[in-house]
């Protein structure tokens, strides 16, 4: 479905990604874990077209999307919800959702999907006329996920959706991710610092360290891997 091979990313003189290859099969949850600064966000940002200074190939459904700009990437069916949520604080919840659907022109489909995400996140329906900035952290995260879903993606990439949330809310977020994957059959690329929770729901996982993949395997394999337990799970 989505394939990244030998991806390099440069920031000026900094060589941030040093040849990353990974794959997300249709309907899977794939997670990228790793310490701060390992290159997880850079990977997602390169796939979504935000980073132009890169080498390697990114293919999606057999098509080379390496050179696409973010708008084309969204239209092709891959959406990214950025780190730190980045909802629009001055726009209403509903406007934030419509913004997520900006690349679409099927009015009926957009309204249908809006009702669907409101069913998924009833809190957002209650607050649909409220400004995004007035929501709590957890609600903002819900909105960020809902907004990404509004583009009707096949692949949804989430950059640290549990960041800064209370433990109870973290659970909710992972539950929703599972739901999106199981019920809607969406492929999920999940970047997390919360390695344990991510590995638990992931079909496949990659571990990044300073710009390279150092370990990979099914979620189950990695959750029992001694190196992972020592490095990330505080074992």
């Amino acid at each position: 479905m989505l394939e990244v091979s030998d991806l390099h990313v440069y920031y000026g003189g900094i060589h941030a990604l040093k040849g990353i290859s990974l794959e997300a099969a249709r309907g899977q949850i794939v997670t990228l874990i790793g310490a701060n600064g390992a290159g997880k966000s850079s990977t997602l940002r390169a796939i979504s077209g935000l980073i132009k200074n890169k080498k390697g190939t990114i293919t999606y459904k057999g098509q080379d999307i390496t050179a696409m700009d973010p708008v084309e990437v969204v239209k092709s069916g891959i959406v990214m919800s950025p780190e730190g949520r980045r909802i629009f604080p001055h726009l209403s919840v509903e406007e934030n959702l419509y913004l997520g659907a900006y690349s679409r022109s099927d009015k009926d489909g957009i309204e249908r999907d809006k009702e669907w995400v409101f069913d998924l996140f009833p809190r957002l329906r209650e607050r649909k006329n409220q400004k995004g900035g007035t929501l709590s952290g957890g609600e903002q995260q819900m909105l960020a996920v809902a907004r990404a879903l509004m583009s009707a993606p096949d692949v949804i990439m989430l950059d640290e959706p549990s960041l800064g949330l209370a433990p109870l809310l973290v659970n909710d977020v992972f539950k929703i991710i599972g739901l999106i994957n199981e019920e809607q059959g969406k492929t999920v690329v999940l970047v997390e610092q919360n390695a344990f929770a991510a590995l638990k729901i992931a079909h496949y996982a990659y571990v990044l360290e300073t710009g390279s993949i150092v370990l990979q395997g099914t979620g189950e394999e990695l959750i029992n891997d001694k190196r992972i337990i020592e490095a990330y799970l505080g074992g």
Binding site: L50, V71, V74, V79, R86, Y102
Partner: peptide, 24 residues
């Protein structure tokens, strides 16, 4: 209008607007 929504979004956060498919 949709373009107006795009304007208001861009004025706050160009990068995220771009990610949401706004033709900046």
């Amino acid at each position: 209008t949709k373009a107006g929504l795009g304007m208001r979004a861009i004025s706050k956060d160009i990068e995220t607007s771009y990610l949401m498919g706004v033709s900046v």
